[in-house]
Amino acid sequence: MSKLIEVLTKDGSYSLKSISFQENFHSLLGALEETKIKFTAPSDLQRFKGKSLNVLDICFGLGYNSASLLDELIKQKSYLNLFALEIDKKPLEYSIKNKSFLKLWAPKIKKIFESLHQNNYFEDPFFKCKILWGDAREKINIIPAANKFDLIYLDGFSPQKCPQVWTIEFLSKVTEKLNPQGYLITYSSSAAVRKTLRNLGLEIFSIKPGINDCGFWSQGTVAIAKFDKNKLKLNLNFEKLSVMEEEHLLTKASIPYRDHNLNSRRDDIIKKRLDEQLLSNLVSTKKWRKKWGMTKSAFKS
């Protein structure tokens, strides 16, 4: 796979930059902070205290999301059945050799990650973990149809850099794997992704920015098939989309990425979407940004 460059983020945690995708694995503000705010906190893991849960981690990368999940589940003595999808072994190789990364978690995480790297598998009385190496568009089909997930983490490179994991066709396969009350969680607030998930029948919520994140209007998206509205009041981490976010879904930015046979190249997927946007009568994203005083850096479409 591509060459990777080590990056030290502002919270002291390490990440990587992909030369091929020309994008960092995490925000420069902090790899650990991003994981906690955008994935662990919205998961509401206390729901599973002393219980069992099924999780699918798409684009495992360095393993921050799974490590944080495992770390919390160790503390609350929960049981886990984890599937992970990843195309490149290099990030995991980096993680199990990086002492700073390993110090962030319970010692057991190192044992689990080493087993995933060497054997693609780990199992003990509490955790059963399996990683499938290769193109996620193919490997998701290996997961038994009976497996439905309480949590699905989608953490690929941004839609404009890696559209393959953000298309209608792939997201359709992903949502089929979700339990009715399960959460699909992603850092992306892309209108194309949100509109696609809504069209697939999921209810969409926005992950709230932190106190120190005044430059962001959202930290990502939580999508749920059948949400108990009475429980939304109890969740401090995500909320209904604002008027501004809803209007974002009415712009050309909401036009989806398409990959009919789930084997298209990145450039072809992007070109197809650009062509569709040019022919669209939807409001321009530029006009939406202007109305709400947004800058291009404030979101990914």
Rank of each mutant, 00 (worst) to 15 (best):
S2N: 15
S2F: 12
V7L: 09
K10G: 04
K10Y: 10
D11Q: 05
D11P: 12
G12Q: 02
Y14L: 14
L16P: 01
S18N: 08
I19D: 05
S20D: 11
F21V: 03
F21C: 04
F25T: 03
K36F: 08
I37C: 00
K38E: 00
Q46H: 11
Q46W: 13
R47L: 14
R47T: 09
F48R: 05
G50K: 07
S52C: 06
S52D: 06
D57S: 13
I58K: 03
F60R: 00
F60A: 00
G61H: 09
L62W: 01
N65Q: 13
S66V: 08
A67L: 05
L69I: 14
L69K: 04
E72V: 13
Q76S: 15
K77I: 08
Y79P: 06
A84F: 10
D88W: 07
L92T: 10
E93L: 12
E93F: 07
Y94L: 08
S95M: 02
N98W: 11
A106V: 12
K108S: 08
K111L: 14
K111V: 13
S115Q: 12
S115A: 15
Y121E: 12
F126D: 07
F127G: 06
K128L: 10
C129A: 14
G134H: 10
K139R: 14
I140E: 01
N141H: 14
P144R: 09
N147M: 15
K148A: 08
K148C: 11
L151S: 01
I152A: 01
D155Y: 12
F157P: 10
S158R: 14
P159A: 03
Q160L: 12
K161V: 09
Q164W: 05
V165K: 04
V165L: 15
T167R: 07
E169L: 10
V174C: 03
E176M: 11
Y187S: 06
S188D: 04
A192F: 01
V193C: 11
K195W: 03
L197I: 11
L197N: 06
R198M: 13
L200R: 03
G201D: 07
G201T: 05
L202S: 07
I207L: 13
K208F: 04
P209T: 01
G210W: 00
G210E: 03
D213I: 05
D213P: 09
C214Y: 03
G215Y: 09
W217K: 03
W217I: 09
S218V: 03
Q219V: 01
I224M: 01
I224W: 00
A225F: 01
A225E: 10
F227E: 00
F227P: 00
F227Y: 06
N230I: 02
L232H: 02
L234V: 04
K240V: 02
M244G: 02
E246S: 10
L249D: 11
L249V: 10
L250A: 13
K252E: 12
I255N: 05
D259V: 10
L262V: 12
D268A: 14
I270F: 10
I270G: 07
K272C: 07
Q277I: 15
L279N: 13
S280M: 11
S284A: 09
K286A: 13
K290C: 07
K296A: 13
K296L: 12
K296D: 15
K296R: 13
